[in-house]
Design a protein around this nucleic acid. Structure first.
Lengths: 190, 190
DNA sequence: CCGATTTCTTAAACTAGCTTAATTTTTTTG
DNA sequence: CAAAAAAATTAAGCTAGTTTAAGAAATCGG
């Protein structure tokens, strides 16, 4: 039904077809056109969102009224404002499709029940979250140890598919650079 | 036996005394004097570390040979290089006691077995990790939306106990500031 | 295919926060 | 308690990266 989703689950836990079927009942599919929103500031982040196919960005609007991207999610990634999701607090973030996307949502309202019915998912999400923490530790180290120029070059060479797929000014925002500076760096390189 | 540890577990999952006893067999207590290391760069991060009492810092040495702190952990916090822990890879980090500390370690070697014996811990660590991800999302937003001056003032007013307990140059490092600049900010404020 | 919108580039002026280096204050330790 | 070590301050000069303001190029919707 949702091949990437199932593949991702089975990468970390053993689930039989019955469990997968049960699970899929709890999942709410959301199809987004380019630029559609999954979450807007002021709303509560209802769900944990899995990107079955497509690309999302998460951003907030800073005091200069500029969109500041904090995360991307490509095929096979989870994304949510976890604080808003957990505590039912209104979010400061927007989650928007960068391209036409197929999303699977697990709503907070059914998350606990789902975990009770398929206890293996506690393990699955423990692993997913643990990996997210590990990834954020790496990102933090890179941000501290590199100049912005190095950080950009590192990103561009480590994730070329990203630089292809996402507009340059969004990559700039994610890395904490101005689009003008990225433009300068690209010119300098060639 | 380890009151903070037990309190923390029971905050998130129901564990009876028997389960707690079982769990405590898997836990390796480590007592650290001020400045002693739990992990040094080049080693594998063997354990997940819980601060029963005391204060840890995690840092790496940057290319200017300056210690860059990425995380602190006070009483009741978990700390580890999760990437090194999970994949048995050698770490780039140091974990050091800032003051005399009582640490509880769960070693990678027994972690899986422990999770199998006390399945509730999958849930416990899922919640702990989920909260860690949420906290890192907040930190990321703050780092992007504030100037370094605002970031310092925010930290100083939000965590006064920290500023008391941890040397100023370490707070500076954690926030990505030079100690000289923090000194200037403090002077400016009064 | 064309007008509108979005994205990218250029370049000059500017500044937040760093570097350097010397001094003072505080803490630690025997 | 005194010497040594660690931490904090001061101040001047500097620079990586931003801001501002156009214009050029690419992409999109109808």
């Amino acid at each position: 039904m949702y091949p990437n989703f199932v593949k991702n689950l089975r990468r970390f836990v053993d689930l039989n077809d019955q469990e997968i079927q049960l699970l899929e009942k709890y999942v709410r599919p959301v199809n987004l056109k380019k630029k559609e929103y999954l979450l807007q500031a002021g709303q509560v982040c209802r769900g944990l969102y899995f990107v079955e196919k497509g690309c999302l960005r998460m951003f907030f609007i800073n005091d200069k009224l500029v969109e500041q991207i904090t995360q991307f999610a490509l095929d096979g990634w989870w994304l949510a404002d976890y604080f808003s999701f957990m505590d039912n607090k209104s979010s400061d973030y927007y989650i928007q499709a960068i391209e036409k996307s197929e999303i699977l949502a697990i709503d907070a309202a059914v998350f606990e029940q789902l975990l009770a019915e398929v206890p293996q998912l506690e393990r699955y999400f423990r692993i997913i979250m643990q990996r997210a923490v590990a990834a954020s530790q790496v990102r933090t180290r890179l941000m501290f140890e590199m100049t912005k120029e190095e950080f950009y070059q590192h990103f561009a060479t480590s994730f070329p598919e990203f630089v292809q797929r996402v507009p340059q000014y969004m990559v700039a925002s994610y890395l904490g650079l101005t689009p003008e500076y990225v433009s300068e760096l690209r010119k300098k390189k060639q």
